[in-house]
Design a protein around this nucleic acid. Structure first.
Lengths: 153, 153
DNA sequence: CTTTATGCAAAAACTTTGCACCGAG
DNA sequence: CTCGGTGCAAAGTTTTTGCATAAAG
């Protein structure tokens, strides 16, 4: 499932781009960490394990390319870092998942929900704005931290 | 309505912070541009009109403080800039508005909707995660650009 | 008066760019 | 072979920090 390595190689070829070890490794690193939200630096460190000679600039250039191919999504979890995660691409509909961000411990929980369909329809009707994609962040306190908060108070 | 100047001064005093011209000006600048989403640099330029001696560092420090006081919200509109806007604070409930981002022309439309209440309840029940606030970004094509797209195709 | 805030400049953090060399096609 | 990609280092950006001075309480 997900982004298949061969499929990716083919996509690069179709676009006239070259298939390099670095590009494959960056994509695979992101693909193998679906829950995690990696920064450029973290991707760099992970890829260096298999390819120690890679440069940080290549990681940035590759991420840029993956963003343009919509294979990867950029996210801001408001901790001051720009993060990336493998996109929902591949398949049919937008399966963009959402993020629950714990204000106490900083934990990020991903979850799927298409409850926004209704909202999107409403917007198209009301504003004449055709919605293609969305990103939702919910801030709050997770189960563990919520408990602690009550204890303290 | 909104964030009252006197209310702000009192809040600073209560927190043991000093009321300076710079702080008041930064807040007022943000308060007077409710629809706009200003970058630190833009705020700096605007405040300089009334207070030419202000430094960019003070703007950053003041924004930081306003964020901690929850008077201002930080937003990423994915154009590479960090932006700020006056918070929904003051009043009772969370009136966090959402953003429609046009992928064609970059225009940002703000709109209010509390349709997420339902979603938030669901999450609290299902994940044990207590939602405090949320941020929603919807990407798509605005009325004008949507029309143009059809013409071109 | 005391303590916090400011302005400036320097530093830090993150990302992009230029260029010679390397490697995929 | 040819052209795009890579690594390195240098340059850009944006944001933070240190410190002496200025101003609020």
């Amino acid at each position: 499932m997900d982004v298949d390595r061969e499929q990716f190689k083919q996509l690069l070829k179709d676009k006239g781009l070259k298939v390099t070890n670095q590009r494959v490794l960056v994509l695979e690193t992101l693909a193998s960490c679906p829950g995690k939200h990696l920064t450029a630096e973290e991707i760099y460190e992970l890829v260096k394990v298999d390819c120690p000679e890679i440069g940080l600039a290549t990681v940035y250039r590759t991420i840029q390319m993956l963003l343009e191919l919509h294979l990867v999504d950029k996210i801001h979890l408001d901790d001051g870092y720009v993060r990336y995660e493998i996109g929902s691409a591949g398949g049919a509909a937008k399966h963009h998942h959402h993020h629950l961000i714990c204000l106490s411990c900083g934990k990020v929980i991903s979850f799927e929900d298409d409850l926004l369909e209704e909202l999107e329809k409403k917007i198209t009707d009301k504003e004449g704005f055709f919605v293609v994609d969305h990103e939702v962040k919910l801030y709050g306190h997770c189960k563990e931290c919520g408990g602690k908060l009550i204890e303290k108070k």
